[in-house]
Nucleic acid binder design. Structure first.
Lengths: 190, 190
DNA sequence: AGGCTGACTTTGTGATCACAAATAACACAT
DNA sequence: ATGTGTTATTTGTGATCACAAAGTCAGCCT
């Protein structure tokens, strides 16, 4: 999810098992789970790698984000008090620092933390779980294409989100989210 | 997904393994996958059962369906030729027969087949996978509450969907889908 | 130099086992 | 009859193993 792994990276049961000092069995269960969620892909011969997404798949996943995340934000809006907004602003500050260091993994991590912090207020666990599934699928690809992201865009969109939250402006919030989610991913294709 | 299992039903690794004549290991992998998708729930002690959904969860899952499925139908619309519409009409005929027999599992199966047949044309595999995840979570609950479903509603909504498909009416199609998806599930809460 | 065949290694699969935790069953006392 | 303590059984967990398929690599031939 945070882009620690690049697309196409192979993972072996014994290798990961040794890395975390456990046997193959629990690793298998975890891998199978991640394959089921689309976070890892399983070749016909059983080999497991991080997925290499086609442009069409990237666009589709972006469309799903654009569908789910404005809804999550909208549901969080009535419950978004000042304490939450302040926490989001703090996370935004961390994002600025991470961008300054051009730390791709840190950027992905804090950016997702911003979104998750907001969505947790939506009281919609199933919807949030679907969104996280999508993030998981995009992680390696976003890391690989981090250099192409217009990193100046993201903080601006986040500020628009915060402004809409403060104003209680639901349509504005939905638009800000859609544009935050798709502006980042528009850069990724090709 | 088809409601063969009722909510709260317990499943054991050894039991399912014996049923399908295999050892615990592959059963464990399958169960873990289904737990990850929300199709089964894992108690704190590791026991596995089909989920018993709260009213809030049912509403949330219905909201997700209402978000995803109109989008899938809309994407299928430009590619929906007469052959597809005829297949959907045939499935609708089977649904009528199944309702006459009050066959809950058959109803769920054919109803989902109707939706999946349409959505396959959307060329959006990730979005369809998310929709199927939701269906999987709802299966046992829909079966349990099948008696409460207004079974006369569903064929009418399906006819509205088919009419919108024939007319190439995108807004009408989206509305028909939203109402098909939510009218069924509105009955489920309490 | 390039491609092919062979042997060797890596890897996932399914099965089985020991173990501990949790559940179920049961007997007993009140 | 009901609650309680103990015993027996069921159950998931993690580890290990044999096996077959897949992948890798070296050496040889053309």
């Amino acid at each position: 999810m945070h882009g620690e792994l690049l697309p196409g990276q192979a993972l072996t049961l014994r290798g990961v098992g040794k890395e975390y000092d456990m046997s193959m069995t629990p690793v298998r269960e975890a891998m199978r789970r991640l394959v089921a969620e689309g976070a890892l892909s399983l070749s016909s011969s059983g080999r497991i790698t991080t997925p290499e997404l086609s442009n069409e798949r990237i666009e589709e996943l972006a469309a799903i984000r654009a569908l789910l995340e404005p809804e999550l934000a909208s549901r969080a809006l009535p419950r978004a008090h000042m304490a939450l907004i302040e926490r989001l602003e703090a996370i935004n500050g961390q994002i600025d620092q991470v961008i300054a260091r051009s730390d791709a993994v840190g950027y992905l991590k804090h950016n997702l933390e911003f979104h998750r912090t907001l969505y947790l207020r939506a009281q919609a666990p199933a919807m949030l779980a679907l969104a996280e599934t999508v993030w998981l699928q995009l992680g390696p690809t976003m890391r690989k294409l981090y250099g192409r992201l217009r990193r100046t865009e993201s903080p601006r969109n986040h500020r628009l989100i915060l402004a809409a939250l403060k104003a209680g402006d639901d349509p504005g919030l939905r638009i800000a989210l859609r544009s935050d989610v798709t502006s980042g991913l528009r850069m990724l294709k090709q």
